[in-house]
Design a protein around this nucleic acid. Sequence first.
DNA 1: TGGTTAGTTAACCAATCGGTGAAATGAGTC
DNA 2: GACTCATTTCACCGATTGGTTAACTAACCA
Lengths: 118, 118
Amino acid sequence: MTADQLSLTFSALADPTRRAILARLAGGEASVTELAAPFTMTLPAISKHLKVLERAKLISRGRDAQWRPCRLRAEPLQDAEEWIERYRLLWEERFDRLDDYLSEAQARGAKSQEDHHD
Amino acid sequence: MTADQLSLTFSALADPTRRAILARLAGGEASVTELAAPFTMTLPAISKHLKVLERAKLISRGRDAQWRPCRLRAEPLQDAEEWIERYRLLWEERFDRLDDYLSEAQARGAKSQEDHHD
DNA sequence: TGGTTAGTTAACCAATCGGTGAAATGAGTC
DNA sequence: GACTCATTTCACCGATTGGTTAACTAACCA
């Protein structure tokens, strides 16, 4: 079942190693061994992570002699960000409306109870 | 290996069923059977998805007689969004600086070559 | 040509994931 | 108490994931 793009993006981002790789790449292109350096795991493991990132279109890879430089691709990041923002804002809007309702209700309540003094 | 919060969030978001559930919840609270209605899968499957969302703190659940109403929690969404935005912006900045460099370089080039006419 | 450096592929393993059906729990209703 | 509705737990399944070691490919260097 070839997953949809958004699922590919989020599941690629779900691994801390892959997020660290992307964080590194935000600072500029890097080779596979450069990317692998900070980690204790073996090179094939990193190679697999890079394949996941590539399949998610979060990186693209060039060829420079025996090196395969990786670079970040921001487009899927933007799509993921927009998905999150959309539903987060929808939800926060609800609270704003609720706040409005509550302050109104409180105003009404205060008015109707202003002789109770309890 | 209790995964970090960001990994929990992204892997919860990596499933289209769970994203649809969150999308539904952005419109307001709902019970488990209400959430399950649009899907062909069985109720235990939905129950598992909800547990994943709950563990990721993307939803919280109340109790109303035999119903367990779910509501969206926006905080982890915000954290995830901020992570993405941060690295996306870092990367896009790089292109802006590259653009600056290229236009400067072109300006210099045009100046030094202004007698070539090719 | 042979050696070194960079990276990938293949085969394997344990753990997790996303689903199932069947049984158990929990809370109102007759 | 018995019946029903909402939801969870259990035991299982096949597929995927994240890692390993060992072997392979590809490009440069002497």
